[in-house]
Amino acid sequence: MRFTLDQLRAFLAVARTGNVRRAAEELHLTQPAVTARIKTLEAALGVELFDRSASMRPTKNGAALIGYAEQYLKLNSLIQRDVGRPDGMQSLFRIGVSETIVQSWLPEFITTLRAEFPRLTVEIDVDISRTLRERLFANAIDLALLMGPISDYRVENIPLPDYQMTWFRSPSLSVSDPAAGAPVITFARDTRPFRLLKETLLERCGPGAVIFPSSSLSACFRLVAAGLGIGALPLSLAADYLTSGQVEQFDPGWTPEPLSFTASFLAAPEVSVTGRAAEIAQMVATAYDKN
């Protein structure tokens, strides 16, 4: 009886998704290739693993194999991690990142990740956290660095340091209160910071508060520096603007809530690179936060 890791991966993907097409997308294979691997595995074991009449539902034998297959792949992952050479691992690693992280410690993270896995090809997708969450569940990215945690039993969340929010204005702007009428420049409309800030402004300042959302945090700081409004933005991203005197902090008596981030990934038997990448992200982010 002989079977391969690729056959077990195909089996688990179909068992998890209940669909050959979705499994093929997850594994970056064609549907015939996934089907062939399942049939070859069934031939090697001498049993049917799926009930084809019930949307690829595992048979009794298939259900029994799931636990063994996960252990087998996990053991292979541990051998690669603890015995194999990290610099020998070569694959495509897809990272989804919130712009807040792009503007802060992403370069240091990629540098450290590549130092440990130099043959890794890294693909970076920058988007809002809601979209990154969707892409993670669609297996379009391997690791999401986003506003979290993601509350789902399938997801592992590694906590990252919070981003403190504060108020900024141009030195030429005398506004000292968000209720004074100047537009509030902040995160994009379809984000958690925008929603929370809008709710708080409505409660504290009434319906007259005006918000200018932007999908670019760099654009937010440039608009604030130009005196076009006040900013509700992460403090750690303002260093260059504060040092150059283009913006200054001010205190209206309250600040928006801190932003919580996580390194999130789908739990799976083989997550050696992904799990290690999440640990590296936590290490790099913590060092950046202390500086």
Rank of each mutant, 00 (worst) to 15 (best):
T4N: 12
L5Q: 15
D6A: 15
Q7G: 08
R9I: 01
F11G: 13
F11P: 10
A15Y: 11
V20T: 13
R22Q: 14
T30I: 02
Q31W: 03
Q31G: 09
R37Y: 07
K39V: 14
K39A: 14
T40C: 08
L41Y: 13
E42F: 08
L45D: 09
E48S: 15
L49D: 13
S55E: 13
T59D: 07
A63Y: 05
I66R: 12
I66E: 13
G67C: 00
A69M: 11
A69R: 10
Q71C: 05
R81L: 14
V83T: 12
G84Y: 05
R85I: 00
P86A: 05
S91R: 15
L92V: 14
F93K: 03
I95V: 15
V102P: 00
Q103C: 05
S104C: 04
W105M: 09
L106Y: 10
I110E: 12
L113E: 06
R114E: 12
R114I: 02
E116P: 02
D125G: 00
V126E: 11
S129R: 10
S129G: 10
R130M: 09
R133P: 00
R133I: 05
R133G: 09
E134A: 15
L136D: 01
A138C: 01
A140D: 14
I141M: 04
L146I: 15
G148T: 08
Y153F: 06
V155F: 04
I158E: 08
P159S: 11
P159N: 09
P159D: 11
Y163G: 10
S170Y: 02
V175S: 14
P183K: 07
P183W: 01
I185A: 06
T186F: 06
D190G: 03
R192Q: 13
R192D: 13
F194Y: 15
G208F: 04
G208Y: 03
G208M: 04
V210K: 11
I211S: 01
A219Y: 00
V224T: 09
V224C: 07
G227A: 08
G227C: 04
L228I: 02
S236V: 02
A239Q: 14
A239I: 01
T243P: 00
S244D: 15
V247Q: 04
E248S: 07
G253A: 10
W254I: 04
P256D: 05
P256M: 07
P258W: 01
L259C: 00
L259R: 04
F265P: 04
L266D: 06
A267K: 15
A268W: 07
P269L: 05
P269Q: 08
P269G: 14
V271R: 12
S272V: 00
T274A: 10
T274M: 02
Q282V: 00
M283G: 01
Y288W: 15
